[in-house]
Design a binder for these strands. Structure first.
Lengths: 110, 110
DNA sequence: TTAACATTCAACCAAAGGGTTGACTATATT
DNA sequence: AATATAGTCAACCCTTTGGTTGAATGTTAA
């Protein structure tokens, strides 16, 4: 379970295509900031900021080694977000089922 | 499948506790704007804006009846978001499994 | 027909977001 | 020791966001 604040940070971090792309690129394993930034058409600084957002959301972690920073993926927040969404969807699924059933019975009684 | 833009809008809309609460409150069925706004400590106008954000993200729909607007939940965007997150998680789960297996084999060979 | 009600529109404000450039820090390389 | 490299920090610029208040619009009720 995650606090609302944590969920906020996770969803906000995910609600940006650049950051989602960064996460996907990390599938190749940990990656240095510069390497991570290369394919983007924005400045290194901009990417650095995006990484910071992901880091604050705990979606990535950073390992400093000399002057290089190695960024890698952390699955926990996505798990928590998925849990929240699933919970909400299940909740709604059952409610919509109930509604549908009620409507069907209403039909029958006509 | 949802376009990046759509996913952006969905996640952005969800990344706010007020809007998540509004969605939850809608489980009681469709609700008028004023009724929806009542428990919040912000102005009616502020809630009206939040509803607009949810509406643009297609997370709610609006039925006008005279001077009243009835807001109700729409499940599709949440389904799409869940699909994206699940996809990403599964992808990562398999990658992390592979990593773990590789590490174990590395251990054996020592 | 006047008054109350439900809701949005418009203008404004402060804070945050996403980007830029330029300077700075720390580590490598020569 | 001098220089190049990796990355952040700081200041700035727009635009967006989340909130406010006050006026406008349309609908219902007295």
């Amino acid at each position: 379970m995650s606090t609302p604040r944590t969920l906020d940070r996770t969803l906000t971090a995910l609600a940006d295509p650049t950051r989602r792309t960064i996460l996907q690129r990390l599938s190749a394993g940990e990656m240095r900031v510069t390497e991570l930034a290369r394919p983007f058409s924005m400045s290194l600084n901009a990417v650095s900021k995006h990484i910071l957002v992901l880091e604050r959301a705990r979606l990535v972690k950073r390992r400093r080694l000399g002057r290089e920073h190695f960024i890698s993926y952390r699955p926990e927040p996505l798990d928590a977000a998925a849990a929240w969404i699933e919970e909400t969807r299940n909740f709604w699924a059952s409610r919509l089922d109930t509604l549908e059933r009620l409507l069907r019975e209403e039909d029958k009684n006509k």
